[in-house]
Write a protein that binds this DNA or RNA. Structure first.
Lengths: 152, 152
DNA sequence: ATAGATGCAAAAACTTTGCGAAGCC
DNA sequence: GGCTTCGCAAAGTTTTTGCATCTAT
């Protein structure tokens, strides 16, 4: 009933194999409440698997995403962030440092999706995404310090 | 009263200068209803200014964005897309090829932004973004052809 | 046994930047 | 004339990939 068994089945169904690396990548991502970039996740995973390569982390994130076990949050400049919570939920992104966090509020149904479908013509609209943006506590602190230093 | 004059004023106010390259980058972007990546825009701009460099296109897009004349749409994997329509409006993004298009529907007020602020704790929430996702007509065609070829 | 995954490293894709020359104000 | 921007090219980031080896099934 654990995540591993469901994942293992899903992997096998698509002709894939369950490797230590794949399991640890997903387990590690799932254990975080932050939403790291691939490079950040690589560093964390290396604590458990020192010899894993960046390529493997990228390949597994891609595979897990295709299987629906991970979502990619590629809003904002710089690297994509990854999230093992795949049921729709809202995020906040820091405009300053790019950090992404969950927002614990109930998700609303898609606004005006029927109107969007009508306006989209021949496009097939499958969903929508909402992202809040702002400044995270850490960067707000830094900004304040900067203002203080500059004396304005 | 044209875009150029307002832009020129805005540029000057910030100690900048109005160059041919800067004007053409913005004019070209504004003349498209597509939302090209920097590289795509570079190719189009080169028809008018064959000697312009990629660096100049990137630098100007960055500057014009800071001045609020361009918005950056960096949803999705791969390169950022740019849009000279800066008043808020909805986009659709193709999950297949990454193409971005406008959606001509009226924008709703921010959903539950007060709730988001409460849930965000110490974050300062300044806004939100909504993006519809789906499959564009071109990729839908390709998918159909593929399905036909595979006979499934 | 064998197809799929890995580690390594090189390449590709995307963006920024240093520098000397050129151009806007 | 002075300070910004330019073109060029190199470097920085982020992601993908080729290949020989290894491993889960």
């Amino acid at each position: 009933m654990g995540l591993d068994e469901r994942l293992e089945d899903a992997i096998h169904e698509h002709g894939g194999r369950m490797t230590e690396q794949r399991r640890v990548v997903l387990e590690t991502l799932a254990s975080l409440n932050s939403h790291p970039t691939a490079a950040e996740l690589y560093e964390i995973v290396r604590e458990k698997l020192p010899d894993i390569s960046q390529g493997t982390v990228y390949r597994n994130l891609k595979r897990l995403k295709e299987l629906g076990y991970v979502q990619e949050l590629d809003y904002g400049p710089g690297a994509s962030h990854f999230d093992a919570r795949v049921e729709p939920h809202y995020h906040v992104r820091c405009l300053e440092c790019g950090r992404v966090a969950d927002l614990e509020i109930e998700r609303r149904p898609a606004p005006c999706i029927e109107e969007a479908r009508r306006a989209a013509g021949e496009w097939v609209i499958s969903g929508h995404r909402v992202e809040f943006v702002g400044i995270c506590p850490k960067c707000r602190g830094t900004e304040t310090e900067q203002r203080d230093r500059e004396g304005s």
